[in-house]
């Protein structure tokens, strides 16, 4: 599916309203459109509908006992070749992926997001 409006979008899934607000402010100032939610399930629907160019997912927002949501995000990101930034972990296994441990600094996080976006532009998905 090709995006109709051509707008570059970032989806933020984080239960902390404060974190979403900070990231939204920063990224909007850099010219990105932001879609955000505190609800991980709603996040999956949004990822489907809004076709984000990148997803920022806070892992602490996912329910502890339920690994299936994490898997669904993995699948979503692979199928649509959407890069994903995982907050709250150090482990990262695949391409188009970055991990940022908590508590993080926003400077490096923003640079990570921009690098991933640039890479996915250079190797556009089919």
């Amino acid at each position: 599916m090709i995006k109709e409006d051509g707008q570059r979008r970032v989806l933020i899934v984080d239960e902390s309203e404060e974190s979403r607000e900070v990231l939204r402010t920063i990224l909007e100032r850099r010219g990105w459109e932001i879609v955000d939610t505190a609800e991980p399930r709603q996040g999956l629907t949004l990822a489907d509908h809004c076709q984000p160019d990148l997803i920022v997912l806070d892992l602490e927002t996912l329910p502890h006992e339920d690994g299936s949501l994490r898997d669904q995000y993995d699948r979503q990101s692979q199928q649509s070749s959407t890069p994903i930034v995982l907050l709250g972990t150090t482990r990262v296994s695949q391409q188009r992926r970055a991990a940022v441990a908590k508590p993080y600094h926003y400077g490096p996080l923003v640079r990570t997001i921009e690098t991933l976006l640039r890479k996915s532009q250079e190797t556009p998905s089919t």
Partner: peptide, 13 residues
Amino acid sequence: KNILQGIRGGSFL
């Protein structure tokens, strides 16, 4: 840690 995260966000802004 969560409070620190908030303070970092605020100071960055």
